[in-house]
């Protein structure tokens, strides 16, 4: 990916708009998925995904090939925008819901299966709200945006081993959190 994108980035840095357009076409879906999974669908997510590229365009001269790969650099911009927005929303909508690490795991295989079936963006967002910032970030980058382990590590400015540990703990935390959410949702529907 980095090899494919490098000539386009170089060309865009030299003033070629078409090259930047190609970068945009290539990354917009991933960036949009990342943003939408964090703040939800809708005009705000669309606008924010566009903002990511406008910011990237304005800072393109500062991007250096010796630093993090382009994808990692781009998702740092996306992350900063999302965090600012979430911080702003939280400051106006009350304290966050604390993570309940002590949630008991239902032992029924059926409930587990049901939870996976019911997993959609809204359930995922609700669950992501309850994990730590780093766990959330690793889930969004690895599984929603589809970045590699190395790219995720660069985007989060962490070592690859730390990302491995984070993705393990993030999936464990999500699993613990999601099962009650799904059960609650099913109870509401009944």
């Amino acid at each position: 990916m980095q090899e494919d994108i490098e000539p386009l980035v170089r060309s865009a840095q030299e003033g070629n708009l078409s090259a930047f357009g190609s970068i945009y076409e290539s990354f917009f879906p991933k960036v949009y998925r990342y943003v939408a999974a964090r703040i939800g669908y809708g005009p705000e997510a669309e606008d924010m995904a566009q903002e990511v590229f406008l910011k990237a365009m304005n800072s393109l001269d500062k991007f250096q090939f010796r630093g993090p790969p382009f994808a990692a650099w781009l998702f740092r911009i996306a992350h900063n925008l999302v965090v600012d927005r979430v911080r702003h929303t939280k400051s106006t909508s009350g304290p966050p819901v604390p993570l309940d690490e002590a949630l008991a795991l239902p032992d029924s295989q059926n409930v587990e299966e049901q939870a996976l079936q019911a997993l959609d963006v809204e359930v995922l967002r609700e669950a992501l709200d309850k994990v730590s910032e780093l766990q959330r970030q690793v889930v969004l980058l690895r599984f929603i945006a589809g970045l590699s382990l190395a790219e995720t590590a660069m985007a989060m400015d962490r070592k690859e081993n730390a990302i491995k540990a984070l993705q393990h703990s993030a999936l464990g935390a999500l699993r613990r959190i999601m099962l009650p959410i799904v059960s609650e949702s099913a109870a509401r529907q009944q």
């Binding site: 669309e46 997993l119 929603i144």
Partner: peptide, 27 residues
């Protein structure tokens, strides 16, 4: 869970109109 999360991500459709408008803003 990882596989299902990835599928959720993949199922998020890219809004074509927003993508097109974004390109206009960038231009």
């Amino acid at each position: 869970l990882a596989k299902q999360t990835k599928q959720v991500g993949d199922a998020i459709e890219t809004p074509a109109e927003a993508q097109r408008l974004g390109l206009g803003r960038i231009t």
